[in-house]
Nucleic acid binder design. Sequence first.
DNA 1: GCCGATTTGTCCGTATGTATC
DNA 2: CGATACATACGGACAAATCGG
Lengths: 241, 241
Amino acid sequence: MPKAKFETIYKDLKEKIEKEEYTFQDLLPSENTLVDIYSCSRNTVRRAIALLAEAGYVQSQHGKGVRVIYQPTPQTAFTIGGIESFHESAIRNHKIPFTKVIQFAEIHTDNRIAQKTGFPLGSEIYYIQRVRYLDDTPLIFDINIFLKSEVPGLTEEICRHSIYDYIENTLHMHIVTSKRQIKVQKSTEIDEEYLDLTDYHVLAVVTSQTYNANGVQFEYTESRHHPDYFCFHDTATRKHI
Amino acid sequence: MPKAKFETIYKDLKEKIEKEEYTFQDLLPSENTLVDIYSCSRNTVRRAIALLAEAGYVQSQHGKGVRVIYQPTPQTAFTIGGIESFHESAIRNHKIPFTKVIQFAEIHTDNRIAQKTGFPLGSEIYYIQRVRYLDDTPLIFDINIFLKSEVPGLTEEICRHSIYDYIENTLHMHIVTSKRQIKVQKSTEIDEEYLDLTDYHVLAVVTSQTYNANGVQFEYTESRHHPDYFCFHDTATRKHI
DNA sequence: GCCGATTTGTCCGTATGTATC
DNA sequence: CGATACATACGGACAAATCGG
Protein backbone atom coordinates (compact mmCIF):
# COMPACT_ATOMS: atom_id res chain seq x y z
CA MET A 1 0.00 0.00 0.00
CA PRO A 2 1.64 3.21 -1.10
CA LYS A 3 1.05 6.06 1.26
CA ALA A 4 3.88 8.31 0.20
CA LYS A 5 2.85 10.66 -2.58
CA PHE A 6 5.76 9.79 -4.84
CA GLU A 7 4.91 6.09 -4.57
CA THR A 8 1.33 6.76 -5.55
CA ILE A 9 2.45 8.72 -8.59
CA TYR A 10 4.95 5.98 -9.47
CA LYS A 11 2.27 3.33 -9.24
CA ASP A 12 -0.16 5.37 -11.30
CA LEU A 13 2.33 6.08 -14.09
CA LYS A 14 3.52 2.46 -14.03
CA GLU A 15 -0.03 1.22 -14.54
CA LYS A 16 -0.65 3.71 -17.32
CA ILE A 17 2.51 2.48 -19.06
CA GLU A 18 1.56 -1.17 -18.58
CA LYS A 19 -1.89 -0.47 -19.99
CA GLU A 20 -0.09 1.24 -22.86
CA GLU A 21 -1.80 4.53 -22.18
CA TYR A 22 1.71 5.79 -22.64
CA THR A 23 3.35 3.45 -25.09
CA PHE A 24 6.84 2.47 -26.14
CA GLN A 25 8.90 5.44 -27.37
CA ASP A 26 6.33 8.00 -26.24
CA LEU A 27 7.38 10.92 -24.12
CA LEU A 28 5.64 11.25 -20.79
CA PRO A 29 3.99 14.60 -20.06
CA SER A 30 6.68 17.04 -18.99
CA GLU A 31 7.59 17.24 -15.33
CA ASN A 32 5.81 20.57 -14.99
CA THR A 33 2.67 19.11 -16.54
CA LEU A 34 2.81 16.20 -14.12
CA VAL A 35 3.17 18.70 -11.30
CA ASP A 36 -0.19 20.12 -12.35
CA ILE A 37 -1.79 16.71 -12.87
CA TYR A 38 -0.82 15.36 -9.46
CA SER A 39 -0.75 18.75 -7.72
CA CYS A 40 2.60 18.24 -6.09
CA SER A 41 6.08 19.65 -6.28
CA ARG A 42 8.51 18.92 -9.09
CA ASN A 43 10.78 17.05 -6.67
CA THR A 44 8.02 14.58 -5.95
CA VAL A 45 7.36 13.97 -9.64
CA ARG A 46 11.07 13.46 -10.16
CA ARG A 47 11.24 10.84 -7.43
CA ALA A 48 8.47 8.89 -9.11
CA ILE A 49 10.24 9.13 -12.47
CA ALA A 50 13.50 7.99 -10.87
CA LEU A 51 11.71 4.85 -9.65
CA LEU A 52 10.29 4.21 -13.12
CA ALA A 53 13.75 4.60 -14.65
CA GLU A 54 15.22 2.19 -12.12
CA ALA A 55 12.55 -0.35 -12.97
CA GLY A 56 13.38 -0.04 -16.68
CA TYR A 57 10.10 1.61 -17.64
CA VAL A 58 11.38 4.99 -18.78
CA GLN A 59 14.55 6.85 -19.54
CA SER A 60 15.04 10.58 -19.04
CA GLN A 61 16.54 12.63 -21.82
CA HIS A 62 18.00 15.97 -20.93
CA GLY A 63 16.21 18.77 -22.74
CA LYS A 64 13.78 16.45 -24.49
CA GLY A 65 11.58 14.61 -22.07
CA VAL A 66 11.05 11.24 -20.43
CA ARG A 67 10.85 8.41 -22.94
CA VAL A 68 8.90 5.20 -22.32
CA ILE A 69 11.06 2.14 -22.99
CA TYR A 70 8.69 -0.44 -21.53
CA GLN A 71 7.59 -3.26 -23.79
CA PRO A 72 5.18 -5.94 -22.60
CA THR A 73 6.91 -9.29 -22.26
CA PRO A 74 5.29 -12.49 -23.53
CA GLN A 75 4.75 -14.06 -20.03
CA THR A 76 6.27 -17.42 -20.83
CA ALA A 77 8.85 -18.80 -18.44
CA PHE A 78 8.89 -18.48 -14.68
CA THR A 79 10.96 -15.38 -14.18
CA ILE A 80 12.65 -14.06 -11.10
CA GLY A 81 14.13 -10.67 -10.31
CA GLY A 82 13.91 -8.19 -7.49
CA ILE A 83 13.37 -9.51 -3.98
CA GLU A 84 10.40 -11.75 -4.23
CA SER A 85 9.25 -14.89 -2.51
CA PHE A 86 8.47 -18.05 -4.43
CA HIS A 87 4.79 -17.56 -3.69
CA GLU A 88 4.82 -14.01 -4.98
CA SER A 89 6.61 -15.06 -8.16
CA ALA A 90 4.19 -17.90 -8.70
CA ILE A 91 1.20 -15.61 -8.43
CA ARG A 92 2.80 -13.02 -10.72
CA ASN A 93 3.40 -15.79 -13.27
CA HIS A 94 -0.14 -17.19 -12.87
CA LYS A 95 0.97 -20.60 -11.64
CA ILE A 96 0.03 -22.78 -8.70
CA PRO A 97 2.84 -23.12 -6.15
CA PHE A 98 3.42 -26.11 -3.90
CA THR A 99 6.15 -26.66 -1.35
CA LYS A 100 7.42 -29.92 0.14
CA VAL A 101 9.58 -29.69 3.26
CA ILE A 102 12.44 -32.20 3.12
CA GLN A 103 14.22 -31.20 6.27
CA PHE A 104 13.51 -28.87 9.15
CA ALA A 105 16.19 -28.74 11.82
CA GLU A 106 17.23 -26.46 14.66
CA ILE A 107 21.00 -26.60 14.91
CA HIS A 108 24.08 -24.50 15.59
CA THR A 109 26.45 -23.25 12.90
CA ASP A 110 29.55 -25.39 12.52
CA ASN A 111 32.69 -24.17 10.79
CA ARG A 112 31.53 -25.02 7.30
CA ILE A 113 28.12 -23.38 7.62
CA ALA A 114 29.51 -20.30 9.40
CA GLN A 115 31.98 -19.85 6.59
CA LYS A 116 29.37 -20.26 3.89
CA THR A 117 26.62 -18.17 5.43
CA GLY A 118 28.58 -15.44 7.13
CA PHE A 119 26.83 -16.16 10.45
CA PRO A 120 28.99 -16.31 13.60
CA LEU A 121 30.23 -19.75 14.63
CA GLY A 122 27.87 -21.43 17.07
CA SER A 123 24.81 -19.32 16.21
CA GLU A 124 21.43 -20.97 16.64
CA ILE A 125 19.87 -21.46 13.24
CA TYR A 126 17.03 -23.09 11.42
CA TYR A 127 18.25 -25.33 8.62
CA ILE A 128 15.57 -26.00 6.05
CA GLN A 129 15.47 -27.95 2.83
CA ARG A 130 12.46 -27.62 0.57
CA VAL A 131 11.39 -28.59 -2.91
CA ARG A 132 9.29 -26.05 -4.79
CA TYR A 133 6.74 -27.16 -7.35
CA LEU A 134 4.92 -25.14 -9.93
CA ASP A 135 1.90 -26.80 -11.51
CA ASP A 136 3.19 -30.14 -10.14
CA THR A 137 6.65 -29.81 -11.67
CA PRO A 138 9.59 -29.70 -9.23
CA LEU A 139 11.56 -26.57 -10.12
CA ILE A 140 13.75 -25.56 -7.23
CA PHE A 141 15.61 -27.23 -4.41
CA ASP A 142 15.86 -24.61 -1.69
CA ILE A 143 18.22 -24.56 1.26
CA ASN A 144 17.26 -21.84 3.72
CA ILE A 145 19.25 -20.95 6.78
CA PHE A 146 17.73 -18.45 9.20
CA LEU A 147 19.20 -16.88 12.31
CA LYS A 148 16.95 -18.06 15.12
CA SER A 149 17.51 -14.89 17.13
CA GLU A 150 16.06 -12.81 14.29
CA VAL A 151 13.39 -15.17 13.03
CA PRO A 152 12.04 -16.86 16.16
CA GLY A 153 9.17 -19.31 16.16
CA LEU A 154 9.65 -20.76 12.72
CA THR A 155 7.88 -24.09 12.25
CA GLU A 156 7.68 -26.79 9.64
CA GLU A 157 4.10 -25.74 9.02
CA ILE A 158 5.19 -22.19 8.16
CA CYS A 159 7.84 -23.59 5.83
CA ARG A 160 5.16 -25.41 3.87
CA HIS A 161 3.65 -22.06 3.10
CA SER A 162 5.52 -18.78 2.86
CA ILE A 163 8.33 -17.98 5.26
CA TYR A 164 8.45 -14.42 3.92
CA ASP A 165 4.79 -13.98 4.68
CA TYR A 166 5.47 -15.06 8.28
CA ILE A 167 8.49 -12.77 8.56
CA GLU A 168 6.74 -9.71 7.23
CA ASN A 169 3.18 -10.13 8.41
CA THR A 170 3.58 -11.99 11.71
CA LEU A 171 7.02 -10.92 12.94
CA HIS A 172 6.59 -7.54 11.27
CA MET A 173 10.21 -7.56 10.23
CA HIS A 174 11.15 -5.47 7.23
CA ILE A 175 13.24 -7.08 4.56
CA VAL A 176 15.41 -4.49 2.90
CA THR A 177 18.54 -5.55 1.08
CA SER A 178 19.52 -8.79 -0.58
CA LYS A 179 22.91 -9.59 -2.06
CA ARG A 180 22.72 -12.31 -4.67
CA GLN A 181 25.06 -14.43 -6.67
CA ILE A 182 24.18 -16.63 -9.61
CA LYS A 183 26.38 -19.53 -10.68
CA VAL A 184 26.08 -22.79 -12.54
CA GLN A 185 26.96 -25.88 -10.53
CA LYS A 186 27.09 -29.59 -11.08
CA SER A 187 24.21 -31.45 -9.51
CA THR A 188 24.55 -33.42 -6.30
CA GLU A 189 22.80 -36.69 -5.46
CA ILE A 190 20.16 -34.85 -3.50
CA ASP A 191 19.43 -32.53 -6.45
CA GLU A 192 18.95 -35.54 -8.69
CA GLU A 193 16.70 -37.18 -6.13
CA TYR A 194 14.21 -34.34 -5.91
CA LEU A 195 14.40 -32.55 -9.23
CA ASP A 196 13.75 -34.30 -12.49
CA LEU A 197 16.98 -33.29 -14.18
CA THR A 198 16.86 -35.93 -16.97
CA ASP A 199 20.12 -35.64 -18.90
CA TYR A 200 21.23 -32.39 -17.31
CA HIS A 201 23.77 -32.70 -14.57
CA VAL A 202 23.90 -29.03 -13.66
CA LEU A 203 21.70 -26.43 -11.98
CA ALA A 204 21.45 -22.68 -11.80
CA VAL A 205 22.29 -21.78 -8.22
CA VAL A 206 21.20 -18.50 -6.69
CA THR A 207 22.73 -17.80 -3.30
CA SER A 208 21.51 -14.80 -1.39
CA GLN A 209 22.24 -13.03 1.84
CA THR A 210 19.35 -10.96 3.08
CA TYR A 211 19.40 -8.10 5.57
CA ASN A 212 16.54 -6.77 7.62
CA ALA A 213 15.77 -3.16 8.55
CA ASN A 214 18.29 -3.36 11.41
CA GLY A 215 21.12 -4.12 9.03
CA VAL A 216 21.38 -7.65 10.41
CA GLN A 217 21.84 -10.49 7.99
CA PHE A 218 19.16 -12.94 9.05
CA GLU A 219 19.03 -15.27 6.07
CA TYR A 220 21.27 -17.26 3.82
CA THR A 221 19.57 -19.09 1.01
CA GLU A 222 20.71 -21.35 -1.74
CA SER A 223 18.10 -21.86 -4.46
CA ARG A 224 19.04 -24.65 -6.82
CA HIS A 225 17.02 -24.25 -10.01
CA HIS A 226 16.20 -26.75 -12.71
CA PRO A 227 18.00 -25.32 -15.77
CA ASP A 228 14.97 -25.56 -18.05
CA TYR A 229 12.86 -23.32 -15.86
CA PHE A 230 15.43 -20.83 -14.71
CA CYS A 231 15.11 -17.30 -16.02
CA PHE A 232 16.51 -14.34 -14.18
CA HIS A 233 15.96 -10.84 -15.46
CA ASP A 234 17.00 -7.40 -14.39
CA THR A 235 17.48 -3.88 -15.63
CA ALA A 236 20.78 -2.15 -15.11
CA THR A 237 21.60 1.48 -15.64
CA ARG A 238 25.06 2.64 -16.57
CA LYS A 239 26.68 4.78 -13.92
CA HIS A 240 29.21 7.31 -15.14
CA ILE A 241 30.95 7.83 -11.81
CA MET B 1 34.70 11.89 -13.60
CA PRO B 2 32.11 13.05 -11.12
CA LYS B 3 31.29 16.70 -11.46
CA ALA B 4 28.00 16.74 -9.63
CA LYS B 5 28.40 17.35 -5.93
CA PHE B 6 26.34 14.36 -4.87
CA GLU B 7 28.50 12.09 -7.01
CA THR B 8 31.65 13.41 -5.41
CA ILE B 9 30.23 12.78 -1.95
CA TYR B 10 29.10 9.31 -3.03
CA LYS B 11 32.55 8.47 -4.32
CA ASP B 12 34.24 9.78 -1.22
CA LEU B 13 32.02 7.84 1.18
CA LYS B 14 32.31 4.73 -0.97
CA GLU B 15 36.09 4.86 -0.81
CA LYS B 16 36.05 5.42 2.93
CA ILE B 17 33.82 2.37 3.32
CA GLU B 18 36.02 0.27 1.05
CA LYS B 19 39.09 1.32 3.02
CA GLU B 20 37.12 0.33 6.11
CA GLU B 21 37.35 3.81 7.56
CA TYR B 22 33.70 3.15 8.20
CA THR B 23 33.38 -0.58 8.79
CA PHE B 24 30.66 -3.20 8.65
CA GLN B 25 27.78 -2.43 11.02
CA ASP B 26 29.04 1.07 11.81
CA LEU B 27 26.70 4.02 11.53
CA LEU B 28 27.80 6.76 9.16
CA PRO B 29 27.95 10.28 10.60
CA SER B 30 24.41 11.68 10.73
CA GLU B 31 23.08 13.49 7.69
CA ASN B 32 23.39 16.84 9.45
CA THR B 33 27.02 16.10 10.30
CA LEU B 34 27.72 15.20 6.68
CA VAL B 35 26.09 18.46 5.67
CA ASP B 36 28.74 20.23 7.73
CA ILE B 37 31.59 18.03 6.47
CA TYR B 38 30.79 18.52 2.80
CA SER B 39 29.21 21.96 3.19
CA CYS B 40 26.15 21.20 1.16
CA SER B 41 22.43 20.80 1.67
CA ARG B 42 20.83 17.81 3.30
CA ASN B 43 19.18 16.82 0.02
CA THR B 44 22.57 16.46 -1.61
CA VAL B 45 23.86 14.24 1.19
CA ARG B 46 20.73 12.16 0.93
CA ARG B 47 21.23 11.62 -2.80
CA ALA B 48 24.73 10.33 -2.15
CA ILE B 49 23.42 7.99 0.55
CA ALA B 50 20.69 6.77 -1.80
CA LEU B 51 23.37 5.77 -4.32
CA LEU B 52 25.34 3.94 -1.62
CA ALA B 53 22.20 2.07 -0.57
CA GLU B 54 21.46 1.10 -4.16
CA ALA B 55 24.98 -0.25 -4.51
CA GLY B 56 24.54 -2.36 -1.37
CA TYR B 57 27.02 -0.41 0.72
CA VAL B 58 24.69 0.99 3.35
CA GLN B 59 21.15 0.74 4.61
CA SER B 60 19.25 3.60 6.19
CA GLN B 61 17.39 3.05 9.43
CA HIS B 62 14.65 5.46 10.34
CA GLY B 63 15.42 7.26 13.59
CA LYS B 64 18.76 5.52 14.05
CA GLY B 65 21.19 6.32 11.28
CA VAL B 66 22.78 4.88 8.17
CA ARG B 67 24.34 1.46 8.74
CA VAL B 68 27.28 0.16 6.73
CA ILE B 69 26.56 -3.32 5.35
CA TYR B 70 29.53 -3.53 2.99
CA GLN B 71 31.88 -6.46 3.48
CA PRO B 72 35.00 -6.88 1.35
CA THR B 73 34.65 -9.87 -0.94
CA PRO B 74 37.46 -12.33 -1.64
CA GLN B 75 38.15 -11.38 -5.31
CA THR B 76 38.15 -14.90 -6.63
CA ALA B 77 35.98 -15.61 -9.62
CA PHE B 78 35.34 -13.38 -12.59
CA THR B 79 32.22 -11.55 -11.56
CA ILE B 80 29.80 -9.53 -13.62
CA GLY B 81 27.08 -7.14 -12.56
CA GLY B 82 25.99 -3.65 -13.55
CA ILE B 83 26.60 -2.54 -17.13
CA GLU B 84 30.22 -3.24 -17.78
CA SER B 85 32.25 -4.20 -20.81
CA PHE B 86 34.38 -7.32 -20.85
CA HIS B 87 37.50 -5.16 -20.77
CA GLU B 88 36.29 -3.22 -17.76
CA SER B 89 35.40 -6.42 -15.90
CA ALA B 90 38.78 -7.91 -16.74
CA ILE B 91 40.61 -4.91 -15.34
CA ARG B 92 38.46 -4.87 -12.21
CA ASN B 93 39.26 -8.53 -11.69
CA HIS B 94 42.97 -8.03 -12.35
CA LYS B 95 43.09 -10.30 -15.38
CA ILE B 96 44.43 -9.97 -18.92
CA PRO B 97 41.67 -9.88 -21.54
CA PHE B 98 41.99 -11.12 -25.10
CA THR B 99 39.40 -11.18 -27.85
CA LYS B 100 39.29 -13.30 -31.00
CA VAL B 101 36.85 -12.26 -33.72
CA ILE B 102 35.20 -15.29 -35.31
CA GLN B 103 32.80 -13.51 -37.56
CA PHE B 104 32.19 -9.92 -38.62
CA ALA B 105 29.38 -9.38 -41.09
CA GLU B 106 27.20 -6.53 -42.30
CA ILE B 107 23.77 -7.94 -43.03
CA HIS B 108 20.06 -7.17 -42.80
CA THR B 109 17.74 -8.61 -40.17
CA ASP B 110 15.75 -11.59 -41.36
CA ASN B 111 12.63 -12.82 -39.64
CA ARG B 112 14.44 -14.92 -37.06
CA ILE B 113 16.88 -12.20 -36.04
CA ALA B 114 14.25 -9.47 -36.01
CA GLN B 115 12.15 -11.60 -33.70
CA LYS B 116 15.03 -12.38 -31.38
CA THR B 117 16.57 -8.92 -31.20
CA GLY B 118 13.55 -6.70 -31.33
CA PHE B 119 14.99 -4.78 -34.31
CA PRO B 120 12.69 -4.01 -37.25
CA LEU B 121 12.74 -6.50 -40.11
CA GLY B 122 15.23 -5.52 -42.78
CA SER B 123 17.36 -3.24 -40.57
CA GLU B 124 21.02 -2.95 -41.44
CA ILE B 125 23.06 -4.58 -38.72
CA TYR B 126 26.52 -5.70 -37.76
CA TYR B 127 26.60 -9.36 -36.82
CA ILE B 128 29.61 -10.25 -34.72
CA GLN B 129 30.82 -13.42 -33.09
CA ARG B 130 33.74 -13.26 -30.70
CA VAL B 131 35.51 -15.47 -28.20
CA ARG B 132 36.69 -13.79 -25.01
CA TYR B 133 39.76 -15.06 -23.19
CA LEU B 134 40.99 -14.25 -19.73
CA ASP B 135 44.59 -15.21 -18.97
CA ASP B 136 44.50 -17.45 -22.08
CA THR B 137 41.38 -19.34 -21.03
CA PRO B 138 38.36 -19.06 -23.34
CA LEU B 139 35.47 -17.95 -21.14
CA ILE B 140 32.74 -16.46 -23.24
CA PHE B 141 31.31 -16.88 -26.71
CA ASP B 142 29.76 -13.54 -27.57
CA ILE B 143 27.21 -12.79 -30.26
CA ASN B 144 26.76 -9.05 -30.72
CA ILE B 145 24.23 -7.46 -33.01
CA PHE B 146 24.37 -3.69 -33.48
CA LEU B 147 22.04 -1.38 -35.36
CA LYS B 148 24.23 0.11 -38.07
CA SER B 149 22.27 3.36 -38.07
CA GLU B 150 23.15 3.93 -34.42
CA VAL B 151 26.66 2.49 -34.35
CA PRO B 152 28.16 3.46 -37.73
CA GLY B 153 31.73 2.72 -38.72
CA LEU B 154 32.24 -0.44 -36.71
CA THR B 155 35.18 -2.51 -37.95
CA GLU B 156 36.70 -5.88 -37.21
CA GLU B 157 39.67 -4.08 -35.70
CA ILE B 158 37.44 -2.28 -33.19
CA CYS B 159 35.80 -5.62 -32.33
CA ARG B 160 39.19 -7.03 -31.38
CA HIS B 161 39.40 -4.39 -28.72
CA SER B 162 36.49 -2.77 -26.97
CA ILE B 163 33.31 -1.91 -28.83
CA TYR B 164 32.03 -0.03 -25.80
CA ASP B 165 35.12 2.10 -25.76
CA TYR B 166 34.46 3.00 -29.41
CA ILE B 167 30.80 3.72 -28.76
CA GLU B 168 31.39 5.95 -25.78
CA ASN B 169 34.69 7.64 -26.59
CA THR B 170 34.60 7.88 -30.38
CA LEU B 171 30.91 8.06 -31.20
CA HIS B 172 30.22 9.84 -27.90
CA MET B 173 27.05 7.87 -27.49
CA HIS B 174 25.76 7.44 -23.97
CA ILE B 175 24.78 4.00 -22.87
CA VAL B 176 22.01 4.19 -20.33
CA THR B 177 19.76 1.23 -19.75
CA SER B 178 20.28 -2.48 -20.26
CA LYS B 179 17.65 -5.18 -19.88
CA ARG B 180 19.17 -8.55 -19.18
CA GLN B 181 18.05 -12.11 -18.95
CA ILE B 182 20.05 -15.04 -17.61
CA LYS B 183 19.26 -18.59 -18.56
CA VAL B 184 20.99 -21.95 -18.76
CA GLN B 185 21.11 -23.51 -22.22
CA LYS B 186 22.45 -26.63 -23.81
CA SER B 187 25.62 -26.07 -25.78
CA THR B 188 25.67 -25.94 -29.56
CA GLU B 189 28.40 -27.24 -31.83
CA ILE B 190 29.89 -23.81 -32.16
CA ASP B 191 30.05 -23.40 -28.37
CA GLU B 192 31.90 -26.70 -28.08
CA GLU B 193 34.28 -25.68 -30.83
CA TYR B 194 35.47 -22.50 -29.18
CA LEU B 195 35.00 -23.03 -25.46
CA ASP B 196 36.65 -25.87 -23.63
CA LEU B 197 33.50 -27.25 -22.06
CA THR B 198 34.95 -30.70 -21.14
CA ASP B 199 32.07 -32.76 -19.77
CA TYR B 200 29.64 -29.90 -19.46
CA HIS B 201 27.10 -29.59 -22.20
CA VAL B 202 25.49 -26.40 -20.99
CA LEU B 203 26.31 -22.72 -20.71
CA ALA B 204 25.11 -19.71 -18.78
CA VAL B 205 23.56 -17.42 -21.36
CA VAL B 206 23.14 -13.71 -20.71
CA THR B 207 21.05 -11.93 -23.31
CA SER B 208 20.81 -8.17 -23.11
CA GLN B 209 19.08 -5.36 -24.92
CA THR B 210 20.81 -2.04 -24.48
CA TYR B 211 19.37 1.43 -24.99
CA ASN B 212 21.26 4.65 -25.62
CA ALA B 213 20.48 8.12 -24.35
CA ASN B 214 17.90 8.58 -27.11
CA GLY B 215 15.88 5.64 -25.88
CA VAL B 216 16.80 3.65 -28.97
CA GLN B 217 17.76 0.02 -28.59
CA PHE B 218 21.02 -0.20 -30.52
CA GLU B 219 22.38 -3.53 -29.29
CA TYR B 220 21.34 -7.08 -28.77
CA THR B 221 23.93 -9.34 -27.23
CA GLU B 222 24.07 -12.98 -26.30
CA SER B 223 26.98 -13.83 -24.02
CA ARG B 224 27.47 -17.58 -23.70
CA HIS B 225 29.55 -18.23 -20.60
CA HIS B 226 31.58 -21.26 -19.65
CA PRO B 227 29.75 -22.52 -16.53
CA ASP B 228 32.90 -22.79 -14.41
CA TYR B 229 33.73 -19.14 -14.76
CA PHE B 230 30.30 -17.61 -14.65
CA CYS B 231 29.41 -15.58 -11.59
CA PHE B 232 26.77 -12.89 -11.65
CA HIS B 233 26.09 -10.78 -8.61
CA ASP B 234 23.71 -8.02 -7.75
CA THR B 235 22.09 -6.23 -4.87
CA ALA B 236 18.35 -5.88 -4.75
CA THR B 237 16.27 -3.79 -2.40
CA ARG B 238 12.76 -4.75 -1.43
CA LYS B 239 10.15 -2.31 -2.63
CA HIS B 240 7.02 -2.07 -0.55
CA ILE B 241 4.84 -0.53 -3.20
C1' DG C 1 5.32 5.70 30.43
C1' DC C 2 6.27 10.35 29.03
C1' DC C 3 9.15 13.96 27.13
C1' DG C 4 12.65 15.95 24.48
C1' DA C 5 16.70 15.45 21.52
C1' DT C 6 18.36 13.22 17.57
C1' DT C 7 17.85 11.09 13.17
C1' DT C 8 15.86 9.73 8.96
C1' DG C 9 11.59 10.31 5.65
C1' DT C 10 8.61 13.19 2.90
C1' DC C 11 7.42 17.33 0.66
C1' DC C 12 7.54 22.00 -0.84
C1' DG C 13 9.22 26.32 -3.28
C1' DT C 14 12.85 28.47 -5.54
C1' DA C 15 17.05 29.42 -8.10
C1' DT C 16 20.40 28.28 -11.46
C1' DG C 17 22.63 25.37 -15.00
C1' DT C 18 22.43 22.91 -19.34
C1' DA C 19 20.61 20.42 -23.34
C1' DT C 20 17.15 20.42 -27.11
C1' DC C 21 14.45 22.47 -30.49
C1' DC D 1 17.88 33.75 -29.87
C1' DG D 2 14.09 32.37 -26.78
C1' DA D 3 11.10 28.75 -25.04
C1' DT D 4 10.91 24.33 -23.10
C1' DA D 5 12.69 20.44 -20.76
C1' DC D 6 15.44 17.99 -17.49
C1' DA D 7 19.52 18.29 -13.76
C1' DT D 8 21.44 20.02 -9.70
C1' DA D 9 21.33 22.34 -5.46
C1' DC D 10 19.65 24.97 -1.55
C1' DG D 11 16.83 25.85 2.54
C1' DG D 12 12.95 25.12 5.17
C1' DA D 13 8.92 22.65 7.24
C1' DC D 14 6.79 18.86 9.36
C1' DA D 15 6.23 13.75 10.18
C1' DA D 16 7.81 9.50 12.16
C1' DA D 17 11.04 6.38 14.45
C1' DT D 18 14.54 5.81 18.04
C1' DC D 19 16.78 6.46 22.29
C1' DG D 20 18.02 8.27 26.77
C1' DG D 21 16.73 10.48 30.95
